[in-house]
Design a binder for these strands. Sequence first.
DNA 1: CGATTCCTTGATCAGTATCAAGGGCGGTGG
DNA 2: CCACCGCCCTTGATACTGATCAAGGAATCG
Lengths: 233, 233
Amino acid sequence: MNNCEQCVVRNRAICAGLTAAELDVLSQLGRKQQVSRGQTLVWEGDEALLVANVIKGVLKLGISMPDGREQIVGVVFPSDFIGRPFGQQSEHSVTALTDAEVCVFPRKSFDDFARLHPDLEHKLLQRTLSELDRARGWMLMLGRKTASEKIATFLLELGDRLNDSGCQQSDNVISRFELPVDRQQMGDVLGLTIETVSRQLTKLKSSGMIDLPDRRSVIIKDRERLQNLASAC
Amino acid sequence: MNNCEQCVVRNRAICAGLTAAELDVLSQLGRKQQVSRGQTLVWEGDEALLVANVIKGVLKLGISMPDGREQIVGVVFPSDFIGRPFGQQSEHSVTALTDAEVCVFPRKSFDDFARLHPDLEHKLLQRTLSELDRARGWMLMLGRKTASEKIATFLLELGDRLNDSGCQQSDNVISRFELPVDRQQMGDVLGLTIETVSRQLTKLKSSGMIDLPDRRSVIIKDRERLQNLASAC
DNA sequence: CGATTCCTTGATCAGTATCAAGGGCGGTGG
DNA sequence: CCACCGCCCTTGATACTGATCAAGGAATCG
């Protein structure tokens, strides 16, 4: 059984706000699971057997085409919810981008529990609505932005989300962070090839907007100019 | 006051399943509204003051960039739900693609009502989850498909959705339909220019997969080949 | 019937993909 | 600690898809 009281995402995941008694019941249904980088938790097209809360790490949601083309359609961080409640099958795979820890529930038990707890469903609804808004912003990016605008948009959003999910108490924006993705995966998020991603990053670096101390690190040096480039919507 | 009993989307919109008494309360909150083609119901960035059910017609959800680039991020049909419950502002505009009729509720009253009716929130959650799945499929299309694949995907999905929303009792697929969008709007859905849309349609026509009896009509002549082209996912 | 708007088609251009090669970083084993 | 190997990333050359610019034609509306 899980010790929810001490869970680091206790106050931010959908479990927040449940009574001790409810949490007790819910915790009986779930279990913590480690997922190592590259490991896939759910396959595209699989029956939707589980849902989960992310406790630690970053995971991607991906869809792929028969010929191998791939699109990353979501990136989830600690306290985010994974899976498709009340659904028959998963439309996308879920794969760890970093070593991760998740709190997994069998979907059907979770569904039943949720149906009995309107507050939980309400939180789930709010999250899903926000995720939908985010997906739609992402659609604008994919459909209408240029390669450099896409990169700028991605770096800014990723920085923000890493910041938010990290329980940082500080209000000041962190401008250095580790990329949870390699160049290919950045391409899969943005609808670009690895070469284009690399070239655009180099360009942003030479223009002084960012710095790239090593392959996995980014420093935002001129946030304002980067935001302009992202065509801040 | 609305006469919900006779509403054509009564059994498919989120109101389905409410008791007569509940429906009575809800109907007091809402009113029917006509929206003519081209008219905008909600502007991007506006405070989210209203939500609605679509009764008749087709509407688009759009996001635009400062320089005028635009992306259509959703298309809604009869029985679909519009608006952002429990949210501060609308991330996108809502504009009628055809003359339409909607059942509008002030967002705050709707929110309050929904909070008191878990079944309604549950339906809203299911719809939102489906919409999110759809948006993610759309992301794959925008990020990774070629122009002709995009057009094929769009025509097939549009045909299906017009079919579903039309209360057609027949199971056999309808292969002729009216486009609710002009060429520019098709481009705004697919992340293409109007010229590319036009050229690709011409190409599909000459290859015999579709016919275009007039600017607004499409006949799917070879569904299988079109599905192959769409890279059926 | 004329005017306007929407659509198609053609010519050219630009941005990104593709193909190809080389370099740097990290990990492993000596 | 160093040398080697493999992977990831960068860079260059070229190709190609779709965008842009431009013009003409067809449908729609007053």
